[in-house]
Amino acid sequence: MTIDQISVFMENRPGSLAEVTALLGGAGIDLRALSIADTENFGILRLIVSEPQRALEVLRAAEYVGSVTPVLAVPLADAPGSLAEVLRVLAEADISLEYLYAFITRQAGHAYVVLRVPDNARAAAVLAAGGIATACHEEIFA
C-alpha cells in the first residue's frame, strides 16, 4: 500500500517556503508531514497533504514545478527501537532508501515513517513478511 507524496522544486531564497505554505493554506489543504532536501543551489520540498492532486494543481497554477510520487508510510509505535526494526527488515532484504522522514499523528503513541525506496511493491512485501504494515492515505488523514 502506498500514499501519494507531492514534491516541489524550491529556489534557495528567503520566503519561498512561506509562499508555498500560504498557497496551500489558502486552498484549504491540510499538511500532515513535510521534509526538505537542500543542496547548495536548490531545495526539494516533500509534503504529505490531504489532497495531493489538488495541492499540485494549486502549485502548478502558481508556476511551481512539482510531481506526485507514491511512497510507503509505515505506522510505528512511539517506542524505542521501533524504527530500527523497520530498517533492519529492509536492510536484510538489501533494499536501499532514497530518503525518509517521520511524523506523529493526533493519536497518542503513534508515529509514521515515510520511506522512499526504488521499488514500492517489493519493499511493501518484504515489510509485510516481517509483520510490518504500510498505511493508506485514509488512515493517515483519519
Binding site: S7, F9, I44, R46, V65, E98, R116
Partner: peptide, 15 residues
C-alpha cells in the same frame, strides 16, 4: 529554469 521533465523528487535524480 527548472522544467517538469527535469524535475525529480530526489536530489540524485536532479543532479
Amino acid at each position: 529554469e527548472m522544467t517538469p521533465e527535469m524535475f525529480s523528487d530526489t536530489v540524485k535524480g536532479i543532479a
